[in-house]
Design a protein around this nucleic acid. Sequence first.
RNA 1: GCCCCCAUCGUCCAGAGGCCUAGGACGCCGCCCUUUCAAGGCGGUAACGGGGAUUCGAAUUCCCCUGGGGGCACCA
Length: 467
Amino acid sequence: MASDGAEAPRVRFSPAPSGNLHVGSARTALFNWIHARKTGGTFILRIEDTDAATARPELVDQVLDTLRWLGTEWDEGPYRQSERADLYTAAVDKLLANGSAYRCDCTTEDVDARAQAAGRKTPGYDGFCRDRELPAATSTAVRFRTPDDGEVAFDDVIRGHVSFPAADVVDFVIQRADGSAIFLLANAVDDLDMRVTHVIRGEDLLNTVPKQLLVMQALGHDLPVYAHLPLLVDEGRKKLSKRRHSVGVNEYRERGYLPAAFTNFLATLGWGPPDGVEIRPMGEIVELFELADVTKSGAFFDAKKLDHFNGEYLRALDLDAFVEGVARFLPFAIDDRFRTLAPLVQERCVTFADAGEMVEFLYRDEPEIDPASWDKAMQGPAAEVLDAAIAEFEGVDAAGWNSGRLHEVLAAIGERLGLKLAKAQAPVRVAVTGKSVGPPLFESLEVLGRDATVARLRAARSRLGPS
RNA sequence: GCCCCCAUCGUCCAGAGGCCUAGGACGCCGCCCUUUCAAGGCGGUAACGGGGAUUCGAAUUCCCCUGGGGGCACCA
């Protein structure tokens, strides 16, 4: 890398501080991070909070926290645009001075009204104030003067050559009337100032490139290389919306997904390793990753596939790590009973949050009966099974109360009643755990203990009524 | 309305002119294993949007159409 003497790459992730980081943003952050690691470059974090109206300083920490959880640690920053206003003002002054920008006092209403009067169907500014030479005032914003003809073109690492007719790029605001900078300006100035070499971001920003290129050129600097990632879309192929989906990374974090599984999955959205092995350590992904290999079309965030990834990662955890990780998702403290069942629970979890469901029966005085499970299990010879189980289990002495023994006992009962073990265990399972699914029954009963087991069987039997 | 981008199984990726009767993964279906449920094993379903052109040969190149998406703010 950098054998041509070029400087090491510098990339940046520049989220707006909107709190709960969007999964699409997380993917963008990840790809930036991967590219930096791959190339020995620097990953810069910059918070884009130039809009005082929407900036929520208190939410910045949440973004940082999420990034840390994902493992996409930054090398430089975080910078905050709200603290760099002088830089933007200086840039605007320079553009004003060299004729690249001018003041404008048109309101949005003025612009729309003129467009309507002129019968134009294309929205946008018409250059009304270009030559009015307005003085600075509290009501004037600053607009960038775009070329009237020619084209603005660039080579995107992922998309190839992209060009726009310059005439379609209307004069745009770079500084608000209150003197604050607009994203287009701040973003360009910062990329220049931070010597960013590769701008890796979502495709929704592809259309802003010409404007930013124009600003950068007017400021007289070398231009960064752009790479626009395909958007993450919903099942309707629309940009993932906060309205209808769990698009916040925090939701996944709270539901017990593992950061390694989550980032591994994100890495397969818009990119795939050449050998087709999708589930693998991030270190390998970093090695294999090439920005130019990124796909061009939108990718659906498939929660089912994420679940599969997470299940794989969860099962790969050693037992201690699983127990430690699952702890904060359980509504009760980890004890020996949980530890005993843990290996069986781990095998059956997709996320940490699933574990509680499987063992909660241990921590209640009485099982919470699921009606559907009850109806299904308490049919046919259920009463006989329960009666026999009560009688037999009661006779097992405390020292012999273990899963192997219980297995034998219930198998014998089943045999006597002409039932397969699977059938015979159903009423017992529901009576004791309240559900028709869960960890293996005999291990569960062993951990629950004889007295509690028998008490629950009796309770279920009486609830069942006379046979 | 205008501009830009995109187009392989339901989904995510492979495929950079012959190796493709298109491969892997998730999902789904079936079978096996089995103490329920998972996990695991085995098998199956399923795609190159349409039309031209180039070529001996096109999923791969070019053009048009269609379809989808994104953008066009004193938001980012």
